[in-house]
């Protein structure tokens, strides 16, 4: 019970820290907005290329532009929310290098939550805005038979995906406790994963599909839920329930990452680097 109370307190403190820091940053208005705008543009190239390709090609694995845009939106919204929430955790490698990580260990508060709020930035709001726009366009233009179930499931998809990406970004920090040099490999899963989640899963090769379904379950976060929204059959032959495992897969993934984070902390306290 103690632990639950501790966690609730930590969460409240973390929220307080985050809000204060965002308010602090908004005082530097020019820089604040430039980062958001810059972030809006950084991923737009990919979307423009997708659109251009659809001017030359009929479809992508049987999916129309509107349907692919819906996937783009889902992946981008959840990715950028996770990116925002894990911003501080992503700076853990840098904190370790600079020796400032220690302070998270000498305070009576969850080390993870302290890391989360050690770097708070609003810059991912640009990416988020773009995701929301795409998702909006996708939802409005793709052939969706709206029903209560579909409307109710949409927030679940977003929440699961956000939790999933937050955990996924933590992997990078976890790796950094072992090697500072190899961290780039994690990009294949974070950025690679979010890129892959923007396209219909069945167009990829078996190897990639297995990785991004069963190891890093991005496929269960965007593609399968989208199959339900679009009322499409799964060419890969998984049961229809696959469209609804998003929350469960996200939870499992978070638990695995939590385990990894703890191991990483144990390693840090035994090597100090």
């Amino acid at each position: 019970m103690d632990k639950v109370a501790d966690f609730r307190n930590d969460l409240a403190v973390a929220l307080r820290i985050a809000l204060l820091r965002i308010r602090g940053q908004m005082q530097y208005r020019a820089s604040f907005w430039m980062q958001i705008v810059g972030n809006f543009f950084v991923n737009i190239a990919e979307v423009l290329v997708t659109w251009s390709l659809f001017q030359h090609f009929d479809n992508l694995g049987g999916w129309s532009l509107e349907e692919v845009i819906l996937l783009h939106g889902l992946a981008m919204v959840t990715f950028s929310l996770g990116d925002t929430l894990s911003n501080g955790v992503q700076s853990v490698p840098q904190m370790i290098r600079e020796g400032t990580f220690d302070r998270n260990l000498v305070r009576p508060m969850s080390v993870y939550l302290q890391s989360v709020v050690s770097e708070v930035s609003a810059r991912h709001f640009g990416h988020l805005t773009q995701g929301v726009l795409l998702l909006g366009i996708g939802l409005a233009t793709a052939p969706i038979e709206w029903s209560v179930g579909r409307i109710a499931y949409l927030p679940v998809i977003i929440l699961s995906g956000t939790a999933f990406f937050t955990a996924l970004f933590t992997v990078e920090a976890i790796f950094a406790f072992w090697t500072v040099n190899g961290v780039e490999a994690v990009n294949a899963f974070t950025y690679g994963g979010s890129d892959l989640g923007q396209y219909p899963l069945h167009i990829f090769r078996r190897g990639l599909r297995l990785i991004f379904l069963w190891l890093v379950p991005i496929g269960f976060m965007t593609y399968y839920p989208a199959l339900y929204l679009l009322d499409r059959a799964d060419p890969l032959g998984l049961p229809r329930a696959a469209s609804f495992v998003a929350p469960l897969a996200a939870l499992l993934f978070c638990l695995v990452i939590r385990f990894g984070w703890r191991a990483a902390l144990r390693r840090y306290t035994s090597t100090g680097s």
Binding site: M34, Q35, V37, G38, N39, F41, V42, R123
Partner: peptide, 8 residues
């Protein structure tokens, strides 16, 4: 702040 430049 070079981050803006970098993103662009």
């Amino acid at each position: 702040d070079h981050r803006g430049v970098s993103m662009m």
